[in-house]
Design a protein around this nucleic acid. Structure first.
Lengths: 169, 169
DNA sequence: CGAAAATGGTTGCGAAACGCAACTATTTAC
DNA sequence: GTAAATAGTTGCGTTTCGCAACCATTTTCG
């Protein structure tokens, strides 16, 4: 058994990772956001092996992230298009891109910039913000059980993690 | 050759994926955000194989996302802690969790909820917003070359993707 | 109409990655 | 001083991945 499945983990991050499958998946979705729809175009754009691409596309269709529709007039010819669920991944892709803009490329070295089509102005960076609009950092947050919390979730949240400071209580 | 490397792709999403490596990596980081710091605790929390955990932690340290620090008073005892670069992943984790809240669990079934420590109120969902604060969807965005654009980037952006509509020009 | 190219895959093979269990070497607790 | 905890490493068998070759339709072009 090579890959462990995350589906049984009752955690949003794990569930998202389960659906997105592996790294190729997000690159496929990125291409889909750019307007790529055809098998051959994904393959040429990403350089992914064809059998893997077949598998990933099928998995994305199973998860309701892409639709596979026959656009052939007489015979069949397929296109893969983002569903609303797939389009909902825009914040995920944006967060990933902005993170590498900040921490991999660095300011002034961004390979691409997102702008508003209407105004041409750059899109401000996405941040976690409170109800008052102020940016929140890790320690400003408290994760509490939600309406769908399982016992597994509860015990995970109850666990007080050890750290060096708390060694001699 | 099993895994293809994304490092040579001049794309922010690909670069982020390169650094984050594979799915375990983000779960490790999620645990780190929850306060987990010890090898054994990561292992117990995730159920990850120990050799894989060793590899992933080392890779995260190489990428500057975690620091491995010796907290031993006499001998050595290690802890892995998020660096600022690692803490910068908060929007990525948040976007993933919110996506599965919206599309996997559904409203009213969220396993966990992020609240503001100061007020106790739930943290509003993160969205891509324009300068005027309005939410932007996929088609409101235009991706243009940034200051660090390579020829590879330019030709990718120049490519007009085929779609069924454009078949008979 | 007929040949060639494009499209959208599937199959087989070798290499790399993964999961599991066992083992090890320090360090800490009792 | 012995036992347990910590932080790994090693070996082995299974799974997945990348590559190249192959295949069945469908479309294009002369």
């Amino acid at each position: 058994m090579a890959r462990k499945r995350f589906s049984e983990m009752h955690c949003g991050v794990a569930q998202a990772l389960e659906a997105l499958g592996d790294w190729w998946t997000l690159l496929i979705i990125r291409d889909a956001f750019f307007g790529v729809r055809r098998f051959t175009d994904f393959q040429a754009s990403l350089g992914i092996a064809r059998n893997i691409l077949t598998d990933r596309l099928a998995r994305l269709v199973d998860h309701g992230i892409l639709d596979r529709i026959d656009v052939g007039d007489t015979g069949q010819r397929f296109e893969y298009r983002l569903t609303p669920k797939g389009e909902g991944l825009l914040p995920v892709l944006t967060a990933l891109r902005e993170w590498s803009d900040d921490w991999v490329f660095g300011p002034g070295r961004e390979p691409v910039v997102a702008t508003e089509k209407a105004t041409g102005r750059p899109v401000p960076k996405m941040r976690v913000r409170g109800a008052d609009g102020r940016e929140l950092a890790r320690h400003d947050l408290r994760i509490v059980p939600g309406p769908g919390a399982s016992t597994q979730t509860l015990e995970m949240l109850a666990r007080r993690p050890r750290a060096k400071q708390a060694r001699q209580t």
